[in-house]
Design a protein around this nucleic acid. Structure first.
Lengths: 203, 203
DNA sequence: TTGCTTCTAGAATCTATCATCTAAAAAGGG
DNA sequence: CCCTTTTTAGATGATAGATTCTAGAAGCAA
């Protein structure tokens, strides 16, 4: 069957990922990736027709792995678990988390047309899970859910990712608390949706 | 006194800001900035010795304007106001918010040595305000405060900024609620700092 | 062993994009 | 009318990095 491959797609993506996590996507040039692997650049082109394709594949692989846990928790309508998935996953997959979460745009400047379908699939996958979950939780609403599951955990984790550190345990507590607070039904006497007074004050 | 200036520093920075907000910092080339202004590139170099200096100035101007409100609220130990400043300011200064909040790293690849002091000042300014506020709020702790004032509002606002939209009113409610929840003293029977159970469940 | 296929090697090329500079013209102030 | 500061408009030149190309090596099967 011919000579077996020495530099697999996965190994190449791993190298690209490590560089991206450490120094950003701009540093992940074909030469840098090859260098990290101990391979000549030509080998990369044997697997990926272009750098755009390579980076898109990197992004796709990471997002898929990341999203899996979120979608799963959402399917069980367990919002808190969905929210907590982010800090936990970041701890277990630091480099990949930094790559996927921190460098959305810069990673793939213009998305390759060949992979349009893949992108679409990833996007609608999460979107559908969100929709389904929102439908099952009366009084929550989709925007609120997205905040709890996406925005909040992302904010909680970003600073640590940028520092190259796993999010500390405290982050989980903060996310969980905030998540619950955001989903709780509003107490009767409390004003809704507007004009939030300053409750927390010290001196 | 010679010919009066036609393209002031501020107008140049405004042009750079608009481009950055719309298409990212990479699109803000000297030619693009000049083009937007209807000026030749030479004029930019009359005000800014280099592109790095220009972009650094852009960043500095934005951060200073943004931070002002946060530091003020922090000085009054009003955490909720500090947290809410972010979504409010984003609404009032959409382009500048997108520039400052979204494109931290890429904006200024390597910080010009001339402006090291300025950068230092900005950083320590916020840091000191945070320290002082944390000291006045017993039982809160700095990490928790940073989460409430920085991470949380950032997460709440990011998605909207990326879409070029001002954050909707709901965001303020979510931020306020989450902020309060995070700062509230822990109820006695509740587990602290670890092992957060899933409270929110539906089906 | 021989032949076939698939992979690796690594330099050479090539193409754009941009930052930067220069030298002259213009516009006010005094 | 002189002088200073600012504008104008291209030209320049380097850098960086993606991409290509031609050989040659390495497995596998017969």
């Amino acid at each position: 069957m011919g000579r077996p491959g020495k530099f697999t797609e996965d190994r190449i993506l791993d190298a690209a990922m490590a560089i991206t996590a450490e120094e950003g996507p701009a540093a992940a040039t074909m030469a840098a990736i090859a260098g990290r692997l101990g391979a000549p650049t030509g080998s990369l082109y044997h697997r990926f027709a272009s750098r755009d394709l390579l980076m898109a594949a990197l992004w796709l692989r990471g997002v898929r792995r990341f999203q899996h846990g979120v979608v799963e928790a959402l399917a069980a309508a367990d919002v808190e678990a969905a929210a907590l998935h982010t800090p936990r996953w970041c701890r277990d997959h630091l480099a990949e988390a930094a790559t996927v979460l921190l460098h959305r745009r810069e990673l793939v400047a213009r998305w390759p047309g060949e992979l349009a379908g893949e992108l679409e699939g990833v996007n609608t996958g999460l979107s559908a899970a969100l929709d389904a979950c929102a439908a099952r939780l009366p009084g929550v609403g989709r925007e609120r859910l997205v905040f709890a599951v996406v925005d909040l955990p992302y904010g909680a984790v970003r600073r640590h990712l940028m520092a190259g550190q796993p999010p500390p345990p405290l982050v989980d507590e903060l996310v969980a608390r905030a998540c619950r607070a955001v989903l709780e039904p509003v107490p009767e006497q409390e004003e809704e949706e507007t004009a939030v007074g300053s409750r927390v004050r010290g001196g």
